[in-house]
Design a protein around this nucleic acid. Structure first.
Lengths: 157, 157
DNA sequence: CGCTTGATTTGACTCGGTCAAGACAAGCGG
DNA sequence: CCGCTTGTCTTGACCGAGTCAAATCAAGCG
């Protein structure tokens, strides 16, 4: 990938610094990484970067819209540079793996709730929970039990 | 409301204790309360209950399916006793208020992702983000700014 | 080159929640 | 009704993820 991030940063009104380039490259290589992973990866390009610097960079990137923060229940926050399009996420209950999924429907009925209780809705966030291919293959006998864990609210699909 | 919780607990294989009844009553009165609120409310019925006891009770209730845990991004977890039906949530970006919203669609297209990347999906979790009636009325001038905050990923509705 | 201002470093700190050991009581058999 | 067993509650220490603040540093301007 190796996009030239510098102009993107400048367009957004941010200065171009080594920590920011290192984090952006790390994000491009690891589409759904948590802060801790990004520290490790970013250190390949910038060995002295501190965890707090990464938090600061990520906060700045999210604030200007260059990155997006995703917070699956029960896991540390993940970050991604794929922004501007409308996509959702598949999350594996077992290993936490995340995959992107496009919303192929223009006007999804379920996403325009009939009774909004006076709310003005500006975004619908969808998370699909399940088991990834690897975890299904690795622990077929546990599948039923794992699925039972969050099945209580009623499955949708 | 004052449902008789005792048989529900016993059916689920749990003992009937004062802390559990207090927390269940608190949950019935406060449909989307966080753990801290539940401690406060439960203490009206059981003044000596400890926060950790509430956490323990909630964990037990969620494990047997008598309660559901909801974790909106950037806020402490909420609990509700409305289980078994399939409903989603409206969350106010400004004050964190939560409202239930039924999914009135039987088979929602967006909830059956075309490409599941090898995942077996068992649940689709939907969170609608926006502003509640009160916050819209209270801070009309801030509305645009607040909405800008998470608008970056592309609004759905 | 040097200034200004935003960015980074360092370290302490907060919050939400978990873990573990012992005291306690629900619900069983007698 | 009594006492036992086992699950539950209490108490207190602990943890991870993330934030805050002061001081240092450097990007980008003139």
């Amino acid at each position: 990938m190796e996009t030239t991030w510098a102009p993107r940063l400048r367009e957004a009104g941010l200065r171009v610094t080594r920590p920011r380039l290192a984090v952006l490259d790390a994000l491009a290589d690891h589409p759904h990484a948590d802060a801790d992973t990004l520290v490790t990866v970013a250190r390949l390009a910038h060995p002295t970067i501190s965890p707090q610097a990464v938090y600061g960079v990520l906060k700045a990137l999210v604030a200007v819209g260059l990155a997006r923060r995703v917070e699956p229940a029960g896991a540390p926050a993940l970050y991604e540079v794929r922004v501007g399009d409308n996509h959702h996420h598949l999350v594996c209950r077992s290993c936490g793996a995340v995959a992107d999924v496009d919303c192929t429907v223009g006007a999804a009925p379920c996403l325009s709730p009939s009774d909004t209780a006076g709310f003005v809705v500006d975004e619908a966030e969808v998370v699909f929970w399940g088991l990834c291919r690897e975890c299904r293959a690795r622990t077929p006998e546990d599948t039923a039990q794992v699925l039972q864990h969050r099945n209580r609210g009623g499955a949708h699909a």
